[in-house]
Design a protein around this nucleic acid. Structure first.
Lengths: 343, 343
DNA sequence: CGTCATTATGAGTACGTTAACAACTTGAGG
DNA sequence: CCTCAAGTTGTTAACGTACTCATAATGACG
């Protein structure tokens, strides 16, 4: 049972040799026509192109890649495509890849469970990729011991630095400092925190920024609350704070969705935003979903991050400086959810 | 200037032959070890595995694909990764692909301009894909005349049927009927429509469903409004309707985001939802963004759509029935934005 | 001790492509 | 007529893999 019939009756894909036979030229001439090389007689070119059309020739990616050792694709490994962080990563990388005429080979690991970097690397390395990008939105069990595969660029998208791998991320620590400084300047000091799930790397760094900012100002951080990034969890946390904390003057929610929920809760509790309580978020993700978005937040340049990630994963194109840790700062967007605290 | 040095000093990737030389066996034995075949002496296996580890062997995707004619990847071509429709498509296809141990090769075309199916097909066909999926969220200029490439499964994700290509989509027409029937049953007849941009295929079918439902009930459809899918555009439309139409009792917004904006506008205009005006949307996309989501809407099973799309694009796995038009019905989700109209 | 099955391994080949080189034709200039 | 250049086409080799077949070693059984 031959896998691929060599005769013409089978379903084997049409190769250059088939086209060559049909057009009465050598296979190499077909290659020349396919690649638009100049040294082909016009008449011959047309005959070959006609044969290609006729037979439905499709150049073999495998043959070409085997020949010239490039795949023109970058591998991207994430746990859940739909999470905001991953989506924005895909978007940023997609535009960088497009600029380099490159595709993205996407692999979604388990949506819920963590995965090891070794496993992710092993899977990605067996795919047609010139570089490997791993989104580590929660700490991998083998992060410390992980060794990248030699001979292929590897980038981990995460805030944690690694001794042997380049890591790139938006600055999830710095964004907290931006927001806290903004609140400090307005005069706030009692700033409560509503975070995401504690396994999230983004959460860990955003929260650390909040805590460090307070401690640097010699304010004791009060018990951070834990949500799940959703507006409903922000609502519950906001409700709790409205009822139990009458000294706070501001809330820092670790993403806009929870901030939006928290604002709703505060208002349902009879508190005004921003007159009674200021609220800030992160991501600048509400615009499409709520009218008159008034949330003060931090916006990240995801396309720049995508470009950095891409160019470090596929070093031919950009700086090949090995093993750095790149943190791309966000931009403070001041809207109308923050104000001077009540006296 | 040899592209790839054949000696050991160069940067050529490590092949099975290299491993074989290091382990003192034949290349074929390395292949057997790499693929976990049983007929290898345990001692030999360990020696080979040690050599693999030592040299950092990475199996060549190109060699393997050339050899067995499969890529284990499906091509996906969309215009803008971040659009809700496309994102949900990626998500659904990703989980179907994972079930078949398959990757996704993602190409993002121009975010803003339309692209022709011929161009998309040409680009995708040159990539490592066993099937081609094209998201046609706006009508392609060559839809009527398009001929799929023979020898590779092609699926277009769109509501339009095509005489020579399988098309799959969520039922963007049927969702309107579900919502309109729900409103009819409550007693509504004066139902205004806030649509997306008119070039959108989803918009065209959702709007057609609204119009047909009214006409079937012998109600004259009143001037549909056009938004841009964003909450702000829904707000503006809602504001306009609140001020100019005092006979309407319900609004059908073509997505949840505009519905959310419309509700805000109605309330800002002093109207109650649902007591004075009922509002419905489509997509069931608000849960993460707003607390206490009360919007009646239609939810699509995106994973089922992804599975259908995938299995028609890569027919080896599922039903290979050629050239069908599959419409996957949505599910009506009744919450609390709809009620019996005021008397 | 010969026969035969079982196990382990190697040799050869084909997959489709492109670079490098060789070969052939044509025409101009001496 | 010879030489040389330019244009066009063909031949060969190599990329890395896995299938098929051949070969060699081992042990069981009559």
């Amino acid at each position: 049972m031959a896998r691929r019939p060599s005769n013409d009756t089978g379903t084997r894909p049409v190769s250059m040799a088939d086209v060559a036979r049909a057009a009465g030229v050598s296979q190499q001439t077909v290659s020349r026509v396919a690649n638009g090389l100049p040294n082909v007689n016009e008449q011959t070119r047309q005959r070959v192109q006609a044969a290609m059309q006729e037979l439905g020739f499709r150049p073999s990616y495998a043959g070409r890649s085997l020949r010239d050792g490039r795949y023109h694709s970058v591998g991207l490994c994430v746990n859940d495509v739909t999470k905001f962080g991953n989506l924005s990563m895909i978007d940023g990388i997609a535009s960088a890849a497009r600029e380099h005429n490159c595709a993205i080979t996407l692999v979604e690991m388990s949506k819920t469970e963590e995965f090891s970097l070794a496993e992710a690397t092993r899977r990605m390395a067996a795919l047609p990729v010139d570089g490997i990008i791993i989104g580590m939105s929660r700490m991998a069990p083998d992060f410390e011991t992980f060794d990248p595969l030699p001979g292929i660029g590897t980038v981990i998208v995460t805030m944690y630095a690694h001794p042997r791998v380049t890591t790139v991320d938006s600055d999830h620590y710095g964004c907290s400092l931006l927001l806290m400084d903004h609140l400090f300047e307005l005069g706030h000091e009692q700033i409560r925190y509503i975070g995401g799930p504690s396994f999230s790397v983004d959460e860990q760094f955003r929260r650390a920024g909040w805590q460090d900012a307070l401690e640097r100002k010699h304010v004791e951080p009060v018990e951070p609350l834990e949500g799940d990034w959703s507006a409903n969890s922000g609502y519950e946390a906001g409700r709790y704070l409205a009822e139990h904390d009458h000294t706070m003057t501001a809330i820092y929610a670790a993403n806009d969705q929870m901030a939006n929920g928290a604002i709703a809760a505060l208002r349902d509790s009879g508190l005004r935003v921003p007159e009674d309580v200021s609220v800030v978020g992160v991501d600048d993700s509400l615009d499409d979903f709520v009218a008159h978005n008034e949330l003060t937040t931090v916006r990240f340049d995801l396309h720049q991050r995508g470009r950095e990630v891409f160019e470090h994963a596929v070093p031919e194109a950009g700086t090949a400086g090995k093993n750095v840790a790149i943190r791309i700062p966000g931009q403070l967007i001041i809207r109308h959810s923050t104000a001077i605290p009540r006296a």
